[in-house]
Each structure stands twice: as C-alpha cells, then as structure tokens.
Design a protein around this nucleic acid. Structure first.
Lengths: 150, 150
DNA sequence: GTTAATGCAAACGGTTTGCAGGGGT
DNA sequence: ACCCCTGCAAACCGTTTGCATTAAC
C-alpha cells in the first residue's frame, strides 16, 4: 500500500522492467502488477488471486505465487513476513514499519525515522552484525476500538 | 532460553501449576516441561519432539503441540511468532526482543529497555492503540560472520 | 471408576513442485 | 520456431482435529 493508483507510467514501467530483466510481459503478470499497484492494503497472494477472479477467472494460484516472488526479486514489491504467520505484499519500498490490528488484522505503514537512527544496545556487538530492524506494533485500530465498546 | 537448568524446585513448580490449573501431571507433560527448561535455545515444537525421541520414542507430535499450547496458556512458556514463519518457544518471560541470524537462524534474546520506554511516533495515535511492540533485529551472528570470510 | 489426555490417522491451510501444453517474443 | 510461462495436479510442510484407547486422579 502506498501508491496513488495506476497510470500509463506504471504500465510503461512494468514493460521496461520485464524487458530489462529478460522476462516476458504476460497477461497474468500485467494484471497482477495492476492489482498490486491499485491495492489500498497489504494483500496476500490469495487476496490477489481472489481479486483477480473477476477479470481472469482462469488464473491459477500458483501463478500468483510465482509472479509475486518474481516481483519481489525484481524489487517491484516486497514480501512481508509478519509475525502472525501471514505473508503479505507491500509496494511501499520506503523504509517503514507496521502497525497490526490484532482484532481485524489490518496492517498500516508506520514511519519512525528516529527509531531507525537510534543506536542499538551495546550488548548486540557481541552477538552479531545487525543488517535490518523489523518492528511490528500490535494493538487495536481506531475502528475496532470504537466498535468493541468504548 | 533463560533458565539455569532443571532442579527439584522446577519439578515441584510444574506439579503445583498443574494442580492449580486442575489438569493432570502426565508423563508427557513432565518430560516436555523438562525439555523446555533445559533447552539452551528457542526450540520449535518439532525440535522438542525430536529431542524427546530418546527418552520417549512413542510420544506423538500432536501431543507436543497440545502441551506447548497448554504451557503457553498457563504462562510457563511463551509461543514466539517470528517473522520468518517459525513458531518457537521461549521460557524467558521477561520483556525482551530477539536477534535472528539470517544465515544459521539462531535466535538470541535482546534486552533494550530504553527502546521499550521510547515514546511512539505521534501519527500512531490516529491509527490505533498500541498494546505491544515486537522487534526483531536481523543480521549475521558472530560465528557466521567469521565463517563466511567476514 | 471418571474424566481428561494421549496416540493414531486423517485433514487442514498456505505454499511449492514436476510436468505437459499454450502463449509471448 | 523457440523457449518461457502457465495451468493442472499432486506433493509439501507445519499444524490441527476427531475419535477410540489409555492412564492420571
């Protein structure tokens, strides 16, 4: 989730990317790309597959998995491994973290540059070299807070 | 991972817990408890099952899953949902986070009270109420750093 | 003797794989 | 025409469930 919708620039974008990578721009890849770029949330492979049913009733779930893996490798989207065992996809390539509603499972992007810059605890140097920080804030989103009394 | 090994106090401890909870102290529960308490790492259910094979060759994997879920509910151990889709168990009940080696997959406990106390970014108030912070530091542990030519 | 817990087997959900046939270059 | 990509089906892995048997109280 991130993008301001699909436009011709995106279409030219994916065409270029496929060309550069030496892979074919198939109907399935194009539609999955469009679905990703217009998604307003963090969809799973199965979400994408379900949403494509209307346009492409014959697309197979394994094609969706393969295509999303390809997009992840090409840097178009990023596969999120969240701690609740859900693999979601994110087109927001900027550094950010996530807020996860434990009730409705909605995932929101969180920006916290101050935290990203914070010095790590000294003990970590004895354990290894840190390459990335994965932060999830868990709680209840405003909608679920209101709904569940109060 | 946390404990200083198994002793009679632990045995009396699990007996009390089962009694208080109104559940039976079975041979399986006792052995799984001992395995957890002596573990020097963060074992998965399948790790526990494998390690028990010597002592209890007939113990079933589903019993291990059920028992670990029970221990999680009783507060003896905590089920960790890590972002690499592995469900591990931790007997360290103190607030802490984890360092995960992306090469050998070792998991180390990290204490970072300064971070735990840090004020969240202002934008979060518009998204929901945070109840917990899940932090994973990813990288390479010292052993893997040396080994891989550093 | 009751009742809860175990072992077995089978199902589960999400994901991946081998393969033959179809579509893009 | 070539070969990559797709769809199908089946396997996969970790986990869960229903059920009859077993063992703790």
């Amino acid at each position: 989730m991130t993008n301001a919708g699909l436009n011709n620039q995106n279409l030219e974008h994916i065409r270029r990317i496929c060309e550069d990578a030496g892979i074919k721009l198939t109907h399935q890849r194009l539609e999955i790309f469009k679905e990703l770029m217009t998604a307003q949330d963090h969809p799973s492979a199965e979400d994408i597959h379900r949403r494509l049913q209307k346009k492409m009733p014959t697309v197979a779930i394994d094609t969706v998995y393969r295509t999303l893996a390809t997009f992840d490798e090409l840097g178009i989207a990023r596969k999120l491994h969240l701690a609740n065992n859900r693999n979601l996809f994110d087109t927001n390539l900027a550094p950010h973290h996530h807020f996860i509603c434990d009730h409705c499972r909605k995932v929101d992007d969180i920006y916290w540059p101050d935290f990203d810059r914070t010095t790590l605890p000294a003990e970590i140097s004895g354990i290894g070299r840190v390459r990335s920080r994965h932060l999830e804030l868990h709680g209840l989103c405003t909608a679920c807070l209101e709904q569940s009394g109060e």
